[in-house]
């Protein structure tokens, strides 16, 4: 994997890169000491994994993830911080406490490698983002989620943002619907109308609707009306 280390302490970065040197299968793509330079570097280098400190001079690790154009795998590294980590739901990825031991680091890396292999088995990779794992980082107030794409049932426009529904929860993401659509797998996700994207795997049934439209009933009982043009595309996609 291509790994990037983000920590404001040079010695801490050195410590991590020293530990990573023993893992020949992984390479260090780059290092950054603050949010701004990390953002630039992430876009340039497209790392697959971030070793990310929570406290940075110009923001937190969460701020960084929120501004990333895509969400790589993340392992948080922190000296002692229960509050920030408490913000995570059960879907939290791994975190390491500094000083980091080689055993803990190896275990965390292995977990991600296993996760990635499984992903490739079950889902078709998105062509334009070959490096990005299939999840998105969402922060809502104090709560943070790493939401897996295949857990998203639908996405709906809400003001200037979009609301993402997943696992009987929902959270607001400060992005446009077009931005989200570009990142979702077109084989699974379908733009039902101007306001909504739905996951085809979460459809309960589909009924004809006035004006050649379709009424799509989702498994969570929400009903979505698809316009005539979109309905035609859906019919084509659903045909064998």
């Amino acid at each position: 994997m291509n790994i990037m280390i983000i920590d404001d302490s040079r010695l801490a970065r050195k410590e991590l890169s020293g530990l990573l040197a023993e893992h020949a299968q992984h390479t260090i793509a780059g290092e950054a000491g603050d949010v701004q330079s990390a953002l630039t570097l992430i876009n340039d280098l497209q790392p697959e994994l971030l070793l990310l400190d929570i406290h940075l001079p110009d923001g937190t690790g969460f701020d960084l993830l929120e501004q990333c154009d895509y969400t790589p795998h993340v392992i948080f590294t922190t000296a002692y911080e229960q509050h920030a980590l408490r913000a995570f739901e059960v879907n939290a990825l791994d975190y390491l406490l500094k000083p980091v031991t080689q055993e803990r680091l190896s275990a965390a890396l292995e977990k991600i490698v296993r996760f990635d292999t499984r992903q490739i088995d079950t889902a078709v990779p998105v062509p334009q983002q070959k490096n990005s794992p299939e999840h998105v980082f969402i922060r809502e107030g104090e709560r943070c989620h790493f939401v897996k794409f295949h857990d998203i049932s639908r996405v709906i426009v809400e003001g200037n943002y979009v609301r993402i529904f997943f696992q009987s929860q929902s959270a607001l993401l400060p992005r446009s619907l077009n931005y989200v659509e570009a990142r979702l797998n077109p084989n699974t996700f379908f733009r039902a109308n101007r306001q909504e994207i739905i996951n085809l795997n979460f459809i309960d049934r589909i009924e004809p609707w006035i004006g050649d439209g379709l009424m799509i009933r989702m498994q969570d009982a929400t009903e979505i009306i698809s316009s005539r043009r979109q309905a035609r595309e859906l019919k084509q996609r659903m045909e064998f």
Partner: peptide, 11 residues
Amino acid sequence: FLFNSLNNVRA
């Protein structure tokens, strides 16, 4: 502070 210091000294 303590754990950061330990980590830095380690490096």
